[in-house]
Design a protein around this nucleic acid. Structure first.
Length: 200
DNA sequence: CTGACGATTCACT
DNA sequence: GTGAATCGTCAGC
């Protein structure tokens, strides 16, 4: 298992990075507990020119500041007052690109995930959808700014291969307010994986 | 300081 | 298919 390095995250094309994250492992570990899942669904947010992005049109606030920083850093945001959404900052400093992790397939620490989510047994809802992913992995807004090059939260390549024909590109979810940008094929899913949220 | 709202989910009709 | 839950963030006063 090889942790992804800074030079994976700092590249200019956030859409390419979102596609390449499909099939990688998202790992969280602290207090002697490790949980991980294989990434099966992502969305790219293309910074200032993307109306669906929090950083659209150069909007820069205390909350979005981390997106303007270095690549390979976690950006965790609270949505609807309930759900924590986990993003990975990409591109170089001052270019606020990010990839939202929308779904993973549970790999390690499933008992812990069940405990965190209050579920009795493993089913597809455990880590399907961005709010469920963060809940199962124990990620909350205070993890904003965590460096993915450290050992607390990171993405790794365990050699799992996904062929291009098994990665589908679709429009993003829940961004209807973004006008024409809502139609961009910036969402990537692993074909036929049951953990992909919404319509498969 | 105040009010409006969201990169969602779940229970219910 | 519809609507409530729920609170940090941000724009406006």
């Amino acid at each position: 298992m090889v942790k992804l390095e800074y030079n994976f995250y700092n590249r200019a094309n956030v859409v390419t990075i979102a596609r390449e994250l499909i099939g990688k492992l998202l790992v969280s570990q602290w207090d002697g507990i490790t949980t991980s899942g294989r990434i099966v669904e992502t969305e790219a947010y293309n910074g200032v020119v993307d109306r669906a992005s929090h950083a659209w049109n150069g909007r820069r606030t205390a909350r979005t500041e981390v997106m303007f920083g270095n690549a390979g850093v976690a950006y965790v945001y609270l949505c609807y007052g309930i759900h924590h959404l986990f993003n990975i900052v990409t591109n170089v400093k001052d270019i606020p690109n990010a990839v939202l992790i929308r779904a993973v397939e549970p790999v390690a620490g499933i008992d812990t995930m069940l405990m965190r989510t209050g579920k009795k047994k493993l089913d597809r809802t455990l880590t399907s959808g961005p709010g469920n992913v963060t809940k199962a992995l124990g990620i909350i807004t205070k993890h904003t700014g965590v460096n993915l090059l450290d050992d607390m939260i990171f993405v790794a390549d365990d050699g799992f291969k996904v062929s291009n024909k098994n990665i589908l590109a679709t429009p993003r979810i829940g961004v209807d307010y973004a006008g024409g940008d809502a139609l961009l094929p910036y969402r990537f899913i692993l074909k036929d994986n049951v953990y992909v949220s919404g319509r498969n």
